[in-house]
């Protein structure tokens, strides 16, 4: 009996060692897979080969930080006023889209129809204007065709009103193309007012995103021109303090040509930047 017990103990010990070894090798395989970016908990949307930490706390993926805060838009399909079938892409396209929802009957819309063609040049280059009316079951295609500007796409689709939750007309929805998000919407008394608000918000957005307002850009170009006329280009020693690394580097290395020439000397008169602001050089970008 004791012999049987001893054999069973030995078997149990051997099996325990075997299981422990298997668990260890399994853990090593999982760690290796995780390092290669193909772990079992990897986000399937992540780029191949990227190092992704598995989410084990029940959290959900968060959207990229560069996506504007707005509801998602949708691509639009419908008919044109001449009976043509039309699909207009507004999502995942390089340009922004300004969807102008109009009707043929409302008084305020009448001004919009006339103004859209006339004020199109004021719309930024990266923005496309598309007029949307309700479908032929609610609007007369011939009336829309009569009012429609020739060089602006016109889409008749009641579904577009529902999909983008448009409360009525006139109404304008601005869609950010790359993200496909609605970044602005509302209405105004005229299309010129819409454009003015749109341009202002566009400038604000660029300012908030780290871009420069138009006035700042103009001022910067003006200052750059003055400095360049004085022979002060990027890396010019007068733009940096005596102990500045940038100034040393600029003085030691080759210049890009803008600062070269007979006036390329800190001792020269002309314009010089205060040394405590020297690192803010914006010349000649």
């Amino acid at each position: 009996m004791s012999v049987v017990v001893a054999v069973l103990v030995v078997v149990v010990v051997l099996l325990s060692v075997l299981v422990a070894g298997l668990l260890r090798s399994h853990g090593a395989i999982l760690r290796r897979l995780d390092e290669l970016g193909t772990g079992l908990e990897v986000d399937p949307g992540a780029p191949i080969g990227s190092r992704v930490v598995p989410r084990t706390d029940g959290s959900v993926p968060s959207p990229p930080s560069d996506v504007p805060d707005g509801r998602p838009a949708v691509d639009l399909a419908g008919h044109g006023p001449r009976g043509e079938s039309v699909v207009v892409r507004v999502v995942e396209v390089p340009h922004d889209t300004l969807l102008v929802f109009l009707s043929t009957g409302c008084g305020t819309c009448a001004g919009f129809w006339d103004e859209i063609a006339a004020t199109r040049e004021q719309v930024p280059d990266h923005t496309r204007v598309v007029v949307v009316t309700r479908g032929s079951e609610e609007e007369s295609p011939s009336a829309v065709a009569e009012l429609a500007p020739t060089d602006v796409p016109v889409l008749m689709s009641s579904a577009a009103f529902e999909q983008l939750q448009v409360p009525g007309s006139p109404y304008v929805v601005q869609v950010d193309g790359p993200s496909g998000r609605v970044v602005g919407e509302g209405t105004a008394g005229s299309f010129a007012q819409v454009i003015a608000l749109f341009l202002r918000s566009d400038g604000d957005a660029r300012h908030a995103a780290g871009g420069k307002a138009r006035a700042d850009e103009r001022r910067e170009r003006h200052l750059d021109r003055i400095l360049l006329e004085a022979g002060i280009g990027p890396g010019h020693p007068s733009l940096y303090g005596p102990d500045s690394e940038a100034g040393d580097a600029a003085g030691d290395g080759p210049t890009d040509g803008l600062g070269e020439g007979p006036d390329d000397s800190p001792a020269d008169g002309g314009v010089s930047a205060p040394s405590d602001r020297g690192t803010d050089a914006e010349v000649g970008r």
Partner: peptide, 25 residues
């Protein structure tokens, strides 16, 4: 997104758009 008209049908992939209209020449 599906584009249909005049007996022609296309399923446009992402980023594509289209029209099917009568010849306006």
């Amino acid at each position: 997104m599906e584009l249909t008209g005049y007996g022609i049908r296309a399923d446009l992939p992402s980023g594509w758009e289209g029209t099917i209209a009568l010849d306006r020449d």
